[in-house]
Amino acid sequence: MRVLAAMSGGVDSAVAAARAVEAGHDVVGVHLALSRMPGTLRTGSRGCCTIEDSMDAQRVANMIGIPYYVWDFSERFKLDVVDDFIAEYSAGRTPNPCLRCNEKIKFAALLEKAMALGFDAVCTGHYASIMTDADGNRELHRAAAWAKDQSYVLGVLTAEQLAHAMFPLGATPSKAEVRAEAAARGFTVASKPDSHDICFIPDGDTRGWLAEHVGTAPGDIVERSGKVVGSHEGATAYTVGQRRGLGITVPAPDGRPRFVLEVKPKENTVVVGPKEALDIAELAGSRISWAGLPPKDAAAEFACEVQIRAHADPVPATAFLRDGELVIRPQTPINGVATGQSAVVYVGTRVLGQCTIDRTVSAVPVEA
């Protein structure tokens, strides 16, 4: 097959590209230039698309003997990831930009260009596996190394995208083995730190970045009853589950701490309450996708597991489609769910699909 290897400049994508070559594929490496500030260099281990990363990727491509290109996707990245991030926070939601990047950039924009150029598949260094059922339908599954599993951030992939995706690291037992393999191949990225945080906020100051791009305005901090208990300087600085730095001036009658339960940008208020009110008994979203074949009758309640963060534990649940929403009811309440997050649904190790959370129902009534 003709394979386009997405090379971020990290150790995972380097080994994935090398394995694709050894598997006999005709491989071309490509690094995606996503930053609108191309002179920016890596700060510590933050980011994944700097000039330094591009040079690291090129060195690996030269060593494994494949052509290498840099493609400028900065405009598409700004529109589909950065602007989406700003819009979601402006709406009081908590987005996952890495998941959106996989959906809109690596497996939409990149894949579209790859197909137009005659490639058969896009190869990445994600830790996830693709399997086929008895009828030959492709399915997305967790990686062998659950500690490194990245199937959650790939939950937005569709059946068509899975048909042209390749994850050579899916069956690898550990990240340590990948690093050892990279060292044995002589790759200088073998000991390179993993990237973390949000790549377009390289200093890690998300609060400051949002204040600059979304703006701030003072408003009220209220209880679920509507009672004002404090004030804030900007609602976007608050996240669901937050306890510290709330600016509450009226103590709770029982003396217990309050937590952020909801951010309401239209009213410019932050809603707080007791910790137990963070427990969510139901969540639902309308931005739904299926990673392969959907359930035969999604309107009928089916058993599954739901995961609401990349590194969260899956929780047994039931789910069903109703009025254009995927409604998910965990067997035990999930703590601290925010709208804008993705709820990825699993059946065993298989990723069935996902929805972007639009609403939640607390397990604790407002009167409590």
Rank of each mutant, 00 (worst) to 15 (best):
S174G: 08
R359Q: 14
C304R: 08
G245L: 12
Q341H: 13
S35T: 14
L140D: 08
T216P: 00
R287W: 09
G348V: 10
G292K: 02
T94E: 15
I288V: 15
E212D: 07
A343K: 11
H164D: 07
R258D: 02
R76F: 01
L162A: 04
V222D: 00
K296R: 13
A180E: 15
V11C: 11
G170V: 09
A237R: 12
V11E: 12
P333F: 15
E177L: 14
D279H: 08
V3M: 09
I105T: 08
R287G: 01
D297K: 06
R329D: 03
P97C: 09
A363L: 09
L326R: 10
E75M: 03
A143L: 06
Y346N: 11
P251L: 08
A343T: 07
G125P: 05
C49A: 15
C123G: 07
A235F: 14
D120M: 05
T318Q: 08
D80E: 15
A109K: 13
P330C: 11
S151L: 07
I308W: 05
R46F: 13
I130V: 15
R224T: 13
A18K: 02
H164G: 03
A183R: 15
E212G: 00
K296P: 01
F119S: 04
G336A: 15
G10K: 10
L246D: 08
Y238V: 07
R185C: 08
G230W: 09
L154A: 08
E181T: 06
A368V: 15
V315I: 12
A33V: 09
N96A: 10
R42D: 06
G255M: 11
W209I: 02
A57C: 02
L283T: 05
Q331F: 09
H126I: 03
I221H: 00
G234F: 11
W209Y: 11
G47N: 03
E103R: 14
D84V: 10
Y69P: 00
S191M: 14
A343I: 14
C123N: 06
S191A: 15
E160M: 09
F85T: 06
E325F: 13
T172Q: 11
T158E: 12
P67K: 00
R329G: 03
N96V: 11
Y127S: 08
T132A: 10
L293D: 09
R19E: 10
H196P: 00
G65Y: 02
